[in-house]
């Protein structure tokens, strides 16, 4: 899933991705190599946050057993 400008840059709010990536960073690299729109969205991962099954996580986190991955910019609630 993608939110805010990450969603706009990639062009879809969510998609099904079959991957053998072991970590979030591996998935980012895999998507970035696939198409320019992903590379553009993931150009600076320090500006991004990731949630695994709706819990904030690190980019080094393993993906084993994870069903839902979400990428988004730092949150601006309140």
């Amino acid at each position: 899933m993608y939110f805010a400008w990450v969603r706009e840059r990639i062009g879809v709010p969510f998609e099904d991705v079959q991957t053998t990536a072991e970590t979030v960073s591996d998935l980012v690299a895999e998507l970035s190599a696939r198409e320019d729109r992903y590379a553009a969205a993931f150009a600076d991962v320090s500006a991004l946050r990731v949630a695994l099954d709706q819990e904030l996580a690190d980019f080094s986190a393993p993906l084993a057993g994870v069903r839902e991955v979400a990428f988004f910019p730092p949150m601006t609630g309140g």
Binding site: A4, W5, A70, P73, M75, T76, G77, G78
Partner: peptide, 30 residues
């Protein structure tokens, strides 16, 4: 309030006559 600002997944987008921009998170909030 501190945690809702930086840990609840909301994103603000402001629209003016010049177009729309996403509000950037502030370091001070983090």
């Amino acid at each position: 309030m501190d945690y809702l600002k930086s840990r609840a997944p909301f994103w603000k987008k402001e629209t003016t006559a010049d177009g729309s921009t996403w509000v950037a998170a502030k370091d001070v909030d983090e």
